[in-house]
Design a protein around this nucleic acid. Structure first.
Length: 812
RNA sequence: GCGAGGAUGGCGGAAUUGGCAGACGCGCUGGAUUUAGGAUCCAGUCCCGUAAGGGAUGAGGGUUCAAAUCCCUCUCCUCGCACCA
C-alpha cells in the first residue's frame, strides 16, 4: 500500500503554518542567510522553476537542524517585461495578472513544503518596495553614478523599449527574441564602469563562487591595460585620444580608423570633395546591426584628413571604418596592419602601406609576402630609439616615452558598458526625476517618495514612448526647487534595478523609514548561500547586485563589500531533452503533480536525477523510483512501529554491530553530502540503509534504532513524510528544529577491515584483517593466501606497496 | 577565433581526488506470493569465456607498483564572449 500523501502533506503543512515553524530566529552568532533567487510571477510555477526552491529548501532545512538560525525568505520580482508582456498577451492589467500569479505561485511553493518565512515576503511592484528602489536611484544620482545621455542604444521594436547591453543576446531581445536595432536616444545610465575595476578584481576575494561564473564575469568586464596616445589632426585644431594595448607597435601606424558614429566626422570631412561619400557610408553602416557589421568584409572610406603620429611626426590618412566600435575606448583606433589582423585586411583592401616594426626571432618578415598580420612579440625594428628592444619590454618603454613627450600615458579600458536602466514601459518603478523649465533636471525629494505608478491607466501597451507620458495626472508635477509647474520623467526602471537590492529588504521588510536598518544588515549580511540558475544571470543580475552592494558600502550604509559569500550554480531541469517552458509545451504543473504523486515525491525526484549543479532530466522513471523509496520507507516504519527505538541501544551481536556500523556510516555520509550539495548520493545512502534494514536478519533494538535514524535523515528531503513517521514513532513529529543526529565514531568502521591484495597492480584477492595489523603482518597473511601464493611462486618479489587500511600491491 | 567545462553499462549517474571501476536508482531476467497485477518480496544483471582467466571509463600514446583520475596528441558535445584595438 502506498501512503496517503494528500492527507499527510496537508496535515503537516497546516501544522507548520499554524505554529509558525519557519519564522526566523536570531540568536547571536548563529545566523545563516540562505537565499534562492526570487521569481518572476509570469504564471503559475512549474517544476522547472521548483528545482531551485527544492534544492534551497533541503539545504536550509539541513542548516536549521545543524544549529543555525536560518533566514530563508522569498519574494517576487514583479515589475518588468516578463510580467508585463504576459499581462498584455492576456489582455489584462499587469497588476491584476501579477497578483493572481503571485497568489498561485505562493500556494504552489507552500504545497511543495518549502520552508520560507513568509512574514518577510516582498513584492517589488508594491509601493512599500519600489519606494526604496527609487531611493536607490536617488542615491546613485547623488553620488554621480546615475546620468542621462544621448547615445546609440539597443531598441527592441517588439517590446518597444530600450534594453541594456546585458539584455541583448546575439543582437536579439532577451525576452521576445526580436532583432534589436540601434537608436540614438537620450537615456538614463548607471555608471557601472566606475566600478569595473573593483567588480573584476574583487572576484578574487570570493572563493565560494564557482570559477566558471567568475571567469564569465571577468571576460564580460573585460579589463585591458594599455596606453592612451594623443593624435593631432594635421592642419586642424583637432586631436583624439587613441587607446592601444600594443604601444610597442606605434611606429607601424600607417592609417587611423574612426567609428561611423563619431561626432568628429563632420569636422574631419569639411571642405573635402568626397564628403558626401563619407556621409553615405556613415548612414549605411549605422543602419546595420552589430552582427551584420562584424560579419561583413572590413571596409571604410577616406575622410580627406590626416593625423600626425606623435612619435615620429608622420602624416597618416584617417578613414571612417565600421569595424571600429564607437562605444569602446574613444571610438578611434590606430591602424597597424603588420601586427593586427583587422588592420591588415583593411590595409590590403585599400593599398595602405604595411610596415613591419616587430620581427619574430629566427625569421624575417617582409610586407609583400605576408599573408596575415604578425600579432606575437619579437624584436622591435623601424622604431627609432627602440630598435633592437624586446617588444614586451617595449610596451612599458613606449608608454613612458609617450607620457613624457607626447601627452597620454598608461590607461585601462573595459569591455563592460554603463548600464542603461530607463525603459519606455509602464510596468516598472517610475524614475524619480522632475524636469523644470527654469531649474532643469531635479531629483524628487526623498520625503516625496514613492513616486506612485498610476493605477487608472487605460492604455499601457508600449508604443515607442512610455505610456506614462500620456497620463497627465502623473506627468504634471511641481518643481521641487522653485515650485513652478514641471514634468516628471515618463520612463520606468529596468527590472534588474529592483532585483539589485532585494536581498537587503528581506532583512527588514516592513521598515518605513529606511530600505534596511543598519543593525539588521550588520546582523545578517552577507548572504551565506545564494542559490540559483546562475549561468543566465552571470553577466546581468550577478554583476548588478555586486555593483549595488559596493555603492551602498561606499556610502557607509552597509558593512559588506560583496553581497554573497557563496554562490551555488544550479543546473537546469529539463524534460525530453529541452528546457521546460510553456512554449515547448513540456512543462509539468506543480499542483497537478502534487495532487497525483505528492510534494515529497517531487522533491526526491528532483534531487535524485543528478547532482544539483548539473543539468538534469525530469523523467517518469525517476518518479517511479522516488515513489518506491518513500512507500518502502513508509511500509517498513509502519509495520515495525512498535519496535522503533529513539535512543542509541546496546549492541549485542555481530549482526547488531554490522547494522550499527551501517547506521552510523549513513548518518555520516548523509550529513557530509548535504553539506556539499551532493544530494543525489545522499539519497543513494538512504537507499542503502533502507535495503539493509529490509533484509536485516534480526529485528533487534539496533534495527529499531535504524528505523528511527532513517526517518531523521529523510527529513530535509521529504519533510512531510518524515514528520508523519516521526510522530508515528511516538516522537514530536515536527523535525524542523530538532538537532541533526551525530554519528558515533566507534561505529564508523568495523574491527576488521577488507584489504585488497594486488599482484603487479591486478586485484587477485581480498583479505579480512584486524585493523591494527602492520604492513609486515599483512604481507605475511597475503603470502599464505592460496590465490596469491599461486602468482608469487612464478617470480621473485621485487617490492611491496602498502596503503594502510586499503591495499597491498606485490610486485614480482 | 578566444575562454570554460564535459565524454564512464541499455538509461540517470557513483568512485574517499592516483588505490577494488560501475555505489544507488531505473530497466531487464529468474523465483516467491497473489483470483489478478504495470502491486509487493527475494535473487541476479559491464563484455568474452563452461571454467581458470582475460578485456573494458570517447580514440591513440606516455608517467606510475597502481590511471576514469596526472601529462601529450586527436575526435566529438555543451556553455560563455565574440571586430574590445
Amino acid at each position: 500500500m502506498e501512503y496517503d500523501h494528500r492527507r499527510i502533506e496537508a496535515r503537516w503543512q497546516a501544522y507548520w503554518r499554524e505554529n509558525n515553524v519557519f519564522r526566523t530566529a536570531s540568536r547571536p552568532g548563529r545566523k545563516y542567510y540562505a537565499l534562492e533567487m526570487f521569481a518572476y510571477p509570469s504564471g503559475d510555477l512549474h517544476l522547472g522553476h521548483c528545482k531551485n526552491y527544492v534544492i534551497g529548501d533541503i539545504y536550509a532545512r539541513f542548516k536549521r537542524r545543524t544549529g543555525h538560525d536560518v533566514l530563508h525568505p522569498f519574494g517576487w520580482d514583479a515589475f518588468g517585461l516578463p510580467a508585463e508582456n504576459r499581462a498584455i498577451k492576456m489582455g489584462i492589467h499587469p497588476e491584476i495578472s501579477t497578483t493572481e500569479n503571485i497568489n498561485l505561485s505562493r500556494e504552489s511553493l507552500q504545497r511543495l513544503g518549502i520552508s520560507y518565512d513568509w512574514e518577510r515576503e516582498i513584492i517589488t511592484c508594491m509601493p512599500d518596495y519600489y519606494c526604496w528602489t527609487q531611493w536607490m536611484f536617488l542615491l546613485l544620482f547623488k553620488r554621480n553614478l546615475a546620468y542621462k545621455k544621448e547615445a546609440y542604444v539597443n531598441w527592441c521594436p517588439s517590446c518597444q523599449t530600450v534594453l541594456a547591453n546585458e539584455q541583448v543576446i546575439d543582437d536579439h531581445c532577451y525576452r521576445c527574441d526580436t532583432a534589436v536595432v540601434k537608436r540614438k536616444l537620450n537615456q538614463w545610465f548607471f555608471k557601472i564602469t566606475e566600478y569595473a575595476d573593483r567588480l573584476s578584481s574583487d572576484l578574487d576575494t570570493l572563493p565560494g563562487w564557482p570559477d566558471n561564473i567568475k571567469t564569465i564575469q571577468k571576460n564580460w568586464i573585460g579589463r585591458s591595460q594599455g596606453c592612451n596616445v594623443i593624435f593631432k589632426v594635421a592642419g586642424r585644431e583637432l586631436s583624439f585620444d587613441v587607446f592601444t594595448t600594443r604601444p610597442d607597435t606605434i611606429y607601424g601606424v600607417t592609417f587611423m580608423s574612426i567609428a561611423p558614429e563619431h561626432a568628429m566626422i563632420e569636422e574631419l570631412i569639411s571642405g573635402y570633395p568626397g564628403a558626401d561619400s563619407v556621409r553615405a557610408y556613415v548612414r549605411d553602416s549605422t543602419k546595420r546591426t552589430a552582427v551584420e557589421r562584424a560579419e561583413k568584409e572590413k571596409d571604410g572610406v577616406f575622410t580627406g584628413s590626416y593625423a600626425v603620429n606623435p612619435v615620429n611626426g608622420e602624416k597618416i590618412p584617417i578613414y571612417v571604418a565600421d569595424y571600429v566600435l564607437f562605444e569602446y575606448g574613444s571610438g578611434v583606433v590606430m591602424g597597424v596592419p603588420a601586427h593586427d589582423q583587422r588592420d591588415f585586411q583593411f590595409a590590403r583592401k585599400y593599398g595602405i602601406p604595411i610596415r613591419i616594426v616587430i620581427q619574430p626571432t629566427g625569421q624575417t618578415l617582409a610586407p609583400a609576402s605576408m599573408t596575415q598580420a604578425y600579432e606575437d612579440h619579437g624584436v622591435m625594428v623601424n622604431s627609432g630609439p627602440f630598435n633592437g628592444m624586446d617588444s614586451i619590454r617595449g610596451i612599458a618603454a613606449v608608454i613612458e616615452h609617450i607620457a613624457a613627450n607626447a601627452g597620454g600615458g598608461p590607461a585601462v579600458n573595459y569591455r563592460i558598458r554603463d548600464w542603461l536602466i530607463s525603459r519606455q514601459r509602464f510596468w516598472g518603478a517610475p524614475i524619480p526625476i522632475i524636469y523644470c523649465d527654469q531649474c532643469g533636471m531635479q531629483p524628487v525629494p526623498e520625503k516625496d517618495l514613492p513616486v506612485m505608478l498610476p493605477r487608472d491607466i487605460k492604455d499601457f501597451v508600449p508604443k515607442g514612448k512610455s505610456p506614462l507620458a500620456g497620463v497627465d495626472s502623473f506627468i504634471n508635477a511641481v518643481c521641487p526647487s522653485c515650485g513652478a509647474p514641471a514634468q516628471r520623467d515618463p520612463d520606468t526602471m529596468d527590472t534588474f534595478v529592483c532585483s539589485s537590492w532585494y536581498f537587503l529588504r528581506y532583512l527588514d521588510p516592513r521598515n518605513e523609514s529606511c530600505f534596511c536598518g543598519k543593525d539588521k544588515s550588520d546582523q545578517w549580511l552577507p548572504i551565506d548561500m545564494y542559490i540559483g540558475g546562475t549561468s543566465e544571470h552571470a553577466t546581468g543580475h550577478l554583476i548588478y547586485f555586486r555593483f549595488f552592494t559596493k555603492v551602498l558600502y561606499d556610502a557607509g550604509l552597509i558593512a559588506v563589500n560583496e553581497p554573497a559569500q557563496n554562490l551555488f550554480n544550479l543546473g537546469m531541469l529539463m524534460k525530453d531533452g529541452e528546457k521546460m517552458s510553456s512554449s515547448r509545451g513540456n512543462l509539468v504543473p506543480v499542483r497537478q503533480f502534487i495532487d497525483d504523486h505528492g510534494a515529497d515525491v517531487a522533491r526526491i525526484t528532483i534531487v535524485t536525477a543528478a547532482p544539483p549543479e548539473r543539468e538534469s532530466e525530469w523523467t517518469q522513471e525517476g518518479v517511479i523510483g522516488s515513489e518506491r523509496l518513500l512507500s518502502r520507507i513508509y511500509r517498513l516504519i509502519t509495520e515495525h512501529r512498535e519496535k522503533i527505538v529513539k535512543v542509541k541501544p546496546a549492541v549485542e551481536s555481530a549482526e547488531d554491530e554490522k547494522l550499527m556500523i551501517k547506521i552510523n556510516q549513513t548518518i555520516h555520509k548523509v550529513g557530509a553530502d548535504l553539506d556539499a550539495f551532493k544530494f543525489n548520493t545522499a539519497i543513494a545512502a538512504l537507499w542503502e540503509l533502507l535495503n539493509e534494514l529490509y533484509t536485516a536478519p534480526v529485528k533487534s533494538e539496533v534495527f529499531g534504532y535504524g528505523l528511527f535514524v532513517l526517518v531523521d535523515l529523510l527529513s530535509p528531503f521529504a519533510p512531510h513524510l518524515a514528520d508523519e513517521l516521526h510522530a508515528i514513532a511516538g516522537a514530536d513529529g515536527n523535525l524542523t528544529n530538532i538537532p541533526w543526529p551525530g554519528s558515533d565514531p566507534k561505529y564508523l568502521r568495523g574491527r576488521t577491515i577488507t584489504i585488497v591484495i594486488q599482484v603487479n597492480g591486478k586485484v587477485r584477492s581480498r583479505l579480512e584483517i584486524d585493523g591494527s595489523f602492520t604492513e609486515k603482518q599483512v604481507v605475511d597473511r597475503a603470502l599464505k593466501d592460496d590465490k596469491i601464493s599461486r602468482y608469487v611462486q612464478k617470480g621473485k618479489i621485487q617490492k611491496t606497496v602498502y596503503v594502510p587500511e586499503k591495499l597491498l600491491n606485490i610486485v614480482i
